[in-house]
Design a binder for these strands. Sequence first.
DNA 1: GTCCAACAGTAGGACGGCCTAGTATCTCTT
DNA 2: AAGAGATACTAGGCCGTCCTACTGTTGGAC
Lengths: 162, 162
Amino acid sequence: MPSDPIAEAHRLWVAHGWADAADGMAAITSLMRAQQIVLARVEAVLKPHGITFARYEVLMLLYFSRRHSLPMTFIGERLQVHPTSVTNAVDRLQAAALVRRTPHPHDRRSTIVELLPAGREVAEAATADLNDQVFGAPWIKPAEITNLIEVIAQIRRQAGDF
Amino acid sequence: MPSDPIAEAHRLWVAHGWADAADGMAAITSLMRAQQIVLARVEAVLKPHGITFARYEVLMLLYFSRRHSLPMTFIGERLQVHPTSVTNAVDRLQAAALVRRTPHPHDRRSTIVELLPAGREVAEAATADLNDQVFGAPWIKPAEITNLIEVIAQIRRQAGDF
DNA sequence: GTCCAACAGTAGGACGGCCTAGTATCTCTT
DNA sequence: AAGAGATACTAGGCCGTCCTACTGTTGGAC
């Protein structure tokens, strides 16, 4: 059984006199690796539904909104992604007839994205699968999950994420 | 001050009867967001050095290897990325004259990537900046950092990462 | 009232990740 | 010794992210 590459990197960091940065390096590298692992699982579950995680997030944002519709700008701010990424995601969702663009009634610069019934179906079906196969699956102990949420919330808060 | 979008999503998950998956959803969403935040910081620090995080990881792997050279395959396995991603990164590092490709002495299928002196310089300078501005910076409390490493190690181990 | 700065969205391009397909080489079986 | 399967790498393409540049619209300063 091979050793943990991150623990190995940590050891090398200390050996090179970078001990005060070794923990931070290991934590950030861990974060990168974990995200990659988890994203791959999520994408695998979403693939049969014909969407990606980026598009799933847009769908759920619309799903939870009062009128099942939101301005492009709001979506970008909420998901913390660049406006062009929203354009990209909405383009593909619209091509799949899951959402549609509607002009804003008062501001002709703005565009409203509206969830279509087909999009609502996909959102519900995809969520059922994700809840069953990923979110609700026993990947780590429940206590550790809430711990993880708490620690990351600190990072996010410190970065001005909320 | 707006509330935490992830806490909000958690609340909605519970309200829709998905309580048993709410924590997992929040943890995974947190992971995604945190990775995005941290990666952006790392990339900003590396940008003046003319490399990205993907290429930095390759450079450091070579930097720590005995002969400052490794097979393409080994790099991909260690970094847990697709072989084509290694090809991509090495292409760009080679174009920047930081590494070079060398034929494997015994196996003509294989290619050895060798760190050049210029690559060594960049690796050291980039690491100094990363240690100073990201890895060693006080983004969360030290105890929380080791906690994060531990929890993520469980996820990675469960996923067969090591 | 006019003009200009700010804003909303999109087009085009760079980059990293993956997948599939293809070539070249090795290795094992028979 | 020969063929089959595994292995190493790469080319081309898709997707999501970002950046810059551009068009159109709004709203406030004057």
